[in-house]
């Protein structure tokens, strides 16, 4: 499957799973909103241009907003993590040239520790910005903090499950072949 088709299908699947399943789940606690959809942005290929990445992030967030009727809320958070992503990748990539030899960020291409850091930092950033935008109008600081931590915890758990269930095979690309 070509990258374009694969990512388009993923786009739709992530939005539909978030809208039809995760938003409707009965909350475990008032601090917990299960967010998984932004994993799409973390999975985009290394060679996506920066400009396109920001735009895809914005578009992706806006499609979720379209369903849950909060125009701009998720779009802002997704554009932020899509913009920050290349900086983080360039800091965390350990092997020389891993971003050319592999297709997209994953455990195999980046290694366990860098990939985990990558996921945790972007998840925390996404949730902090999202809850901050919601919280600006009302609410206490303790609620803000609790919600960021609770939501991030559940997001990380969901991402771990998704990574284990849908293992992405990544072959080493060389230019010798």
């Amino acid at each position: 499957m070509s990258d374009l088709v694969k990512n388009t299908v993923r786009f739709l699947l992530f939005i539909l799973v978030q809208v039809l399943v995760l938003v409707k789940v009965k909350p475990l606690h008032q601090f917990v909103v299960p967010y998984l959809y932004f994993l799409y942005i973390l999975w985009l290929p290394f060679n996506t241009p920066r400009l396109a990445l920001t735009f895809i992030g914005f578009l992706f967030g806006f499609s979720l907003d379209y369903f849950v009727k909060t125009p701009g809320l998720h779009a802002a958070a997704c554009a932020l993590i899509a913009y920050v992503r290349p900086f983080l990748v360039s800091i965390l990539i350990s092997q020389e040239g891993a971003d050319q030899n592999y297709k997209s960020p994953s455990v195999t291409s980046m290694g366990w520790a860098p990939y985990a850091t990558y996921v945790v930092v972007l998840t925390l950033l996404h949730n902090t910005y999202l809850v901050f935008l919601e919280w600006m109008e009302m609410g206490s600081f303790l609620f803000f903090l609790g919600k960021v931590l609770g939501t991030t915890g559940v997001s990380l758990l969901l991402i771990l499950l998704t990574e284990l269930l849908f293992y992405r095979k990544q072959s080493f690309k060389t230019n010798t072949a």
Binding site: F58, G61, F62, T70, P71, G72, L73, A75, A76, A79, L80, L133
Partner: peptide, 8 residues
């Protein structure tokens, strides 16, 4: 970001 925050 401006577009998103403005519409929000």
């Amino acid at each position: 970001q401006g577009i998103a925050l403005y519409s929000l």
